[in-house]
Each structure stands twice: as C-alpha cells, then as structure tokens.
C-alpha cells in the first residue's frame, strides 16, 4: 500500500473494530428485549441504535490520541458541537465501506431496503435519507478508505470554531496536524494534485449541513415525544 503518515496509522489504531461494535450493540439491544429479526424498521429502534452508537463515539473520543489530554470541560464542548456530525459520519462510513447499494446497513449488521424506508417516511425524513444516499454515492465513486474516514473523524472532533475553549490553541494545532496528515495521505494515493483532498473537505461541509438538518428533525421528534427515552441522545439534543 501507499506510504502511510504516522498520524494516520495512529488514527486507525484508535478506530473501534466494526465487528466488536456490532456485537456489543446487538447484545445490548437483545438485553433490552429487541428481537434480532424483529421489527428493525421502527423509529424507536433506530433511536436506540443511535444512542448506543453515541456511547461508542464518546468512548472512542475519550481514549483517542490528542483528545485524552484535554480537560473534561473542553472535551464536552467539542463533543456537544459535533456529536451529530460524528453520528452521521458513522452511518455513512458503514455504507461506503461495508454496505450494499439500495439498502441501509445498520450498526447491528441488519439491512433495511431504502425503498422500505422511503415508503414509511414523511417528506423530511425521506429527503434526509435521499441526501445521505447522495453523499454515500459520492464517497463510493471517490473510493474513500478507512484511513481517510479515520482522519475525517478527527477533523470533525477537533473543530475549534465558535466555542469558548480553554485549550483553544492546542485544539487548533491538532486540527492543523490532522489536516496535514490527511493531505499527505491523499497525495500519496491519488495522482490528482489536491483534488482528492478538496473533495474530502467539501464532503465534510456537506456532512455538517446534513447532520444539522438531521439534528433539527430529531429535536422536533423529541419535542413531540416520539424519541424514546435514550439517555445520551436526549442529553445531546438538549446541549445546544
């Protein structure tokens, strides 16, 4: 393979194992009484999965390089402002790396046909799914790999913009280091000078705008009491 920047290897090392995550969350849902082949299309099951995925995201961040050096107050500020980006990135990454066309691969390994989702979804959810699908297709064409996704996760986490951070300079310097590592990596694997890197940064901004819409959608669902009592998900929805 291409020569990999040291930092990119470190990011990969921090990345949780997909199979372990799948087993952990499946076991948790079964413990809560959800049948594996039950009714995975329900909105509340998706919320439970999102909630459990959030736990894994916090655990990933907490044990990751750079983040664990921060004070808890800064850690909370960073996570509060990017949790929905990270959640959406998790879903999109799974589709690009392991998913099949025309279906949504869940964190538990179950698959739902996109046509089934579309037939049950209202206009807002249908449009969110459609836009997410377009992002997945773009990344498929670019053949974005695990290394790049791992870098993007850190770019999302270490976003110093608009927050009252104690360690602002440190967070800014980490962001620069991550960008540098991603740029170096994309230059190694792509002959199109800067093109690939620019595409990935564009994806990042599209992801942020979509996750912001998804967060609004979830918040509305929460206000109408349709989000089941998922501790971390609700807490994050209240954070903004």
């Amino acid at each position: 393979g291409p020569r990999m920047p040291h930092l990119v290897m470190e990011f990969l090392r921090c990345d949780p194992d997909e199979r372990q995550l799948q087993n952990k969350i499946t076991a948790h849902l079964q413990q809560m009484g959800w049948e594996k082949e039950g009714n995975p299309g329900t909105f509340s099951l998706m919320c439970l999965m999102a909630d459990q995925t959030l736990f894994s995201i916090v655990e990933w961040a907490r044990t990751s390089i750079f983040f664990k050096q921060l004070k808890v107050n800064d850690q909370m500020k960073l996570l509060h402002s990017c949790w929905s980006d990270l959640l959406l990135l998790d879903i999109i990454t799974r589709q690009v790396l392991y998913g099949k066309e025309g279906s949504l691969l869940l964190v538990t390994g179950q698959e739902i046909k996109l046509t089934d989702i579309a037939s049950h979804a209202g206009p807002t959810l249908a449009s969110l799914v459609q836009r997410g699908q377009e992002l997945v297709e773009k990344l498929h064409i670019l053949k974005v790999d695990r290394q790049e996704f791992a870098c993007i996760k850190f770019l999302i986490l270490f976003n110093p913009g608009g927050k009252q951070l104690e360690d602002h300079h440190y967070i800014e310097s980490v962001q620069e280091q991550v960008e540098g590592a991603l740029l170096e990596y994309t230059l190694c694997i792509s002959s199109h000078l800067l093109g690939r890197f620019a595409h990935l940064l564009l994806f990042l901004s599209e992801l942020r705008s979509l996750s912001s819409l998804a967060e609004d959608y979830l918040y509305c669902k929460h206000l109408s009491n349709e989000v089941p009592c998922n501790n971390l998900l609700i807490e994050m929805l209240h954070a903004k």
Partner: peptide, 18 residues
C-alpha cells in the same frame, strides 16, 4: 446546566479518578 450534561460528564470523567 451542568446537571443537564451529567451523563456525558460521567462518561468522560469515569476513568480519570483511577
């Protein structure tokens, strides 16, 4: 406001006391 974020704080803090 801190109470609202009790779970996240707990998750981030839990091993720091070990």
């Amino acid at each position: 406001k801190k109470k609202d974020n009790a779970l996240l704080r707990y998750l981030l803090d839990k091993d720091d006391t070990v």
